[in-house]
């Protein structure tokens, strides 16, 4: 698998402990907290008045008219998720469950972030739900992997059929079913 991030790097990136780095921080003070008002250099450079709506519309058109084909990137990121899923399913890995989860979160987040920028709104919606699901996990078991497989299959269908936009009623139904699968899993775990 072409690993964009290794497991340890992902653990650091996705952990919550940002305060550890401040121990020997030269910018920090041992005194009481104080406020600093730096000069507003940007304001000095750009002036006042804002930008006209027409300028912002033109900028948005530049985004919409982008001729980037997201599909190859999306399929590559989905491929990374599938590889990690296979490792988890076959239990053929030394990675911990949390490492495997993080290794799926990273490409899923990229799909969520990028899909909608390039016209694949349903990819963003499904990936967003997928990331939320993954972030709720601390372990992997067969039931959880089944739900993950559902997300993978959904994204596969969307990309394979080059489905741009929100997917209309079918897209809504798809998201609803994936959400329902998560809810069923939760209920089963609590029972």
């Amino acid at each position: 698998m072409a690993e964009k991030f290794n497991a340890e790097e992902l653990r650091n990136m996705l952990s919550d402990s940002s305060s550890d780095d401040y121990e020997k921080n030269p910018m920090l003070s041992g005194d009481a907290p104080r406020e600093i008002s730096p000069p507003n250099k940007i304001k000095q450079k750009v002036g006042t008045g804002g930008l006209a709506d027409s300028v912002i519309d033109k900028a948005q058109k530049a985004v919409q008219n982008s001729n980037v084909d997201f599909r190859p990137t999306g399929l590559e990121q989905l491929g990374q998720i599938k590889e990690v899923y296979a490792l988890a399913k076959n239990k053929s890995t030394d990675y911990t469950d949390l490492d495997l989860i993080n290794m799926m979160i990273a490409p899923a987040m990229q799909m969520k972030a990028n899909g909608g920028m390039f016209g694949y709104d349903l990819v963003t919606t499904v990936s967003d739900l997928f990331v939320q699901f993954l972030e709720s996990l601390t372990t992997l078991d067969d039931d959880i992997l089944q739900v993950i497989n559902g997300f993978i299959s959904a994204l596969n269908v969307i990309l394979a059929s080059d489905l741009k936009g929100s997917g209309g009623k079918d897209g809504t139904a798809l998201v609803k079913e994936l959400s329902a699968a998560w809810t069923r899993l939760d209920k089963k775990k609590k029972a």
Binding site: Y22, N25, A32, R34, P38
Partner: peptide
Amino acid sequence: PRKFIRSDEFF
């Protein structure tokens, strides 16, 4: 623009 805060744990 936000003011900056300098403290033991944050800048």
